[in-house]
Design a protein around this nucleic acid. Structure first.
Lengths: 127, 127
DNA sequence: ATCAGTGTATGGGTTAACTAATACACTAAT
DNA sequence: ATTAGTGTATTAGTTAACCCATACACTGAT
């Protein structure tokens, strides 16, 4: 599950770990209620400091993907807890607003962005 | 021209400066042969250290957008038309990639983003 | 109560990015 | 030669990110 974690990568370890778990949740590989490896167990497996795993888990907890229960473990959250439609819409809008703002600052048109979006979205992998 | 440079932005000052000029060149807002503000002049205008402007100008010089002439100034280079398009595309793609990355981080799909984009820009995305 | 498991909190070391400060060197006009 | 403009080079301070080390606190089974 965590075989591709690479300490030499420019992207931080904790981010790699979190990203891997996000994907696992999104793809259903991890179901709500499932327990993640304990902080120490995963740290040992990856030959990494426990605090690094904590940082990954905490990020996931902040975003609502998992819940950390003191003394018990870390568990995948129920989807409805963070996936309510209105919230998704609001968050998406926030991101897009920021994008358009940045684009405007650079003098890029909405059309430029649209093309880029098509190109990127086209690269997406279907399963 | 440099009114949107923001010291509090997470993206570095020199990068903001360079990005703004890249697009200005790509869009023809700045023509080949045009002189950029001198390192000191721009630094003063932006209330920034000259070395910061230098870093921006140097990046542009490395990529062939400008030429720095010792004792004379910094000037816009001739950039082939196709390169200009590529540059605009590259900048747009950079922004969109970041957007999609943030979206994935929150568990948002490309579809969520597409909807938000349509709502904001009134532009249709086709696949 | 104890123990072995879990997450939590705090502080420190290392490194890299960013920005600044200062002195240097070239150019062109006088 | 001087001067006022230009870019260049080197060094250093500041900040933030990243990862680690260590001690703390909770939970559930014994």
């Amino acid at each position: 599950m965590f075989s591709d974690i690479d300490p030499r990568s420019p992207t931080p370890l904790y981010e790699q770990i979190a990203a891997r778990i996000r994907v696992a949740v999104a793809s259903g590989e991890l179901a709500p209620g499932d327990a993640l490896p304990s902080v120490r167990a995963l740290a040992r497996e990856l030959r990494v400091n426990p605090a690094t795993v904590v940082q990954a888990y905490r990020d996931l907890a902040i975003d609502g993907f998992v819940e950390m229960r003191h003394g018990q473990g870390t568990f995948i959250q129920e989807v409805p807890a963070f996936m309510r439609d209105e919230e998704r819409t609001a968050q998406a809008q926030k991101l897009v607003r920021k994008l358009l703002q940045d684009a405007a600052r650079l003098g890029l048109s909405a059309e430029d962005i649209e093309r880029a979006f098509q190109a990127e979205a086209g690269v997406e992998i279907r399963e």
